[in-house]
Design a protein around this nucleic acid. Structure first.
Length: 475
RNA sequence: GGCGCGUUGGCCGAGGAAUUAGGCAAAGGUCUGCAAAACCUUUUACACGGGUGUGAAUCCCGUACGCGCCUCCA
């Protein structure tokens, strides 16, 4: 299997540290607001990667965090904590805010058929940052002891000048980076280097009234954003891990700092492969909360789209390409999904008879699909092959005995739930039979009436040379 | 200033050299009891300029435009 590694900016053959086991970590959500579908594209990507690994026979150990503390926002000159900001906005406690948006996130990923992490770090296997405070404090201790960190009245910082290859992931020299590009960045005069980042904030000054705080050997406070991932990985998976994923916007700062912390504290690298997902755009601009040009999964559902249509849309592009979202493109994916489902439902219609040889191409198609996925997750190409099979079935029919096993394999890869669909009811089948009789009797008006009746139940009937073929229009 | 990515038809998007995938949409035709599906056409697709090659959407250089990141973002 091949993957693009941000560390080398090349597509590399994937080799895990241990035979047949892959340790995988995905940066999770910051639960201060609803996820938008751009966020969700990244989680579909994580899921696709994991499914691909498992389809290749690897056992995965997959962990994901939930950031419920410490992630600073700064849309005023005061860098607030995102959670605190959300709480103020909604008149709730930070803990309530975290819970509300965590629940919402879980609902979203469930609707998109995204697998939960399989290494337990807490409820539903997600690892909340606030559940790993001691582990984070432990890392700070080590970093202070080893001289990679220092204390100021406001915070404990990581000294980036102490780590030789700091920023390796960006391919950019420290001296070339503009400091505080965004005008709203708050800087601490006591920092040794502008790029030094906080490991621990003291609840003083602007954070004096911070609701979430813990005691530490150095004083009351709360952890910096980057630390949680390093600590959670160290605790749940053990570093180095095989693969670390995230969005491209994490490359420059978050992941650079995660790497730095782990390397400095434990003396070895954090991950062998770094895989990053590109952004979803709207009108050629990044979908983001700050621009306000985003849609949530609830928006999608309200417009009567199946969440899996969105999943299919994401799979039709490559994860390293920016994708320009539009409702028109989602329409396209929804139609495509309908077509795939109609194909899957042929497994219930064994009475049809299919041409000899129908289904013989499945094995080869599956191999092609698998190898496309193995080329750095080229799901777009894989789906093109799949579409070819669906089209073929429209001509030669499908072999139900061979179709179901294929659908199961496809679901493992794509998570589109094609193999678990329900048959139509017996009464509906009887109506189809009756209508066929009416057609033979040339009683067209009655036949049409029965067709309308079926349509009301969400069933469309097509008359083929083999007999009537039904498909669902509602699901 | 630095770093990264992109520019393919009506829309979304694959594609590291010899046929521009696939999905969606629209129009016409064939077929059909009527439909639907299928099939056949059509809807002027590879930003621009150089280079290397028998051959370039694909590799190299440059230009233009766009997007992203450089302590908010997936």
């Amino acid at each position: 299997m091949k993957l693009h590694n941000t560390l080398t900016r090349k597509i590399e053959e994937f080799k895990p540290l241990q035979d047949k086991i892959v340790t995988l970590y995905s940066c999770g959500p910051t639960v201060y607001d609803y996820m938008h579908i751009g966020n969700l594209r990244k989680f579909v990507f994580d899921d696709t990667l994991r499914r691909a690994l498992e389809a290749n026979g690897y056992k995965t150990k997959h962990a994901m965090n939930i950031t419920d503390v410490g992630h600073l926002v700064s849309d005023s000159d005061e860098g607030e904590d995102k959670l605190e900001k959300g709480a103020k906005r909604e008149g709730k406690t930070v803990w309530d805010v975290a819970k509300h948006y965590t629940d919402s996130f879980k609902k979203d990923v469930a609707a998109l058929n995204i697998l939960k992490p399989n290494v337990s770090g807490g409820p539903d296997n997600y690892a909340k940052a606030t559940d790993f405070i001691p582990e984070q404090i432990e890392m700070i201790k080590i970093l202070l002891e080893k001289g990679f960190a220092y204390e100021t009245p406001k915070a404990i910082y990581f000294d980036v000048s102490k780590l030789k290859n700091y920023g390796e992931l960006t391919g950019q020299k420290l001296s070339d980076k503009e400091v505080a590009v965004r005008s709203d960045v708050v800087t601490d005069k006591n920092k040794r280097n502008p790029q030094d980042f906080a490991l621990w904030f003291f609840t003083v000054d602007r954070f004096a009234h911070h609701d979430m705080h813990w005691s530490s050997p150095w004083g009351e406070g709360f952890p910096g954003w980057h630390l949680e991932c390093s600590a959670i990985i160290h605790t749940l998976l053990g570093d180095p891990i095989d693969i670390h994923t995230g969005g491209v916007d994490n490359i420059g700062t978050h992941h650079v700092n995660e790497m730095a912390q782990t390397e400095a504290a434990f003396g070895h690298k954090l991950a062998n492969y770094w895989v990053h997902c590109e952004h979803l755009l709207v009108n050629d601009q990044k979908m983001s909360k700050s621009l306000g040009n985003f849609y949530t999964l609830v928006d999608v559902i309200k417009k009567d789209y199946d969440p899996l249509a969105l999943r299919l849309l994401f799979l039709q592009s490559h994860y390293r390409s920016q994708m320009n979202f539009s409702w028109e493109s989602l329409d396209g994916a929804a139609e495509f999904l309908k077509k795939l489902r109609a194909w899957a439902d042929l497994k219930f219609q064994s009475n049809l008879g299919h041409k000899k040889g129908a289904g013989d191409s499945y094995k080869e198609a599956l191999e092609h699909i698998q190898s496309a996925v193995n080329e750095d997750l080229n799901t777009a190409q894989a789906l093109a092959i799949l579409a070819g099979q669906a089209s073929l079935a429209e001509q030669e029919g499908a072999n139900p005995d061979k179709l179901q096993p294929l659908l199961e394999r496809l679901d493992e890869l794509f998570g589109l739930n094609l193999s678990s669909r329900d048959d139509i009811t017996d009464p509906a089948k009887r109506i189809i039979g009756q209508r066929e009789q009416m057609r033979r009797d040339k009683n067209w008006s009655e036949a049409d009436r029965l067709r309308d009746e079926l349509a009301e139940q969400g069933i469309a009937v097509e008359d083929t040379e083999h007999g009537p073929v039904w498909s669902r229009t509602d699901a």
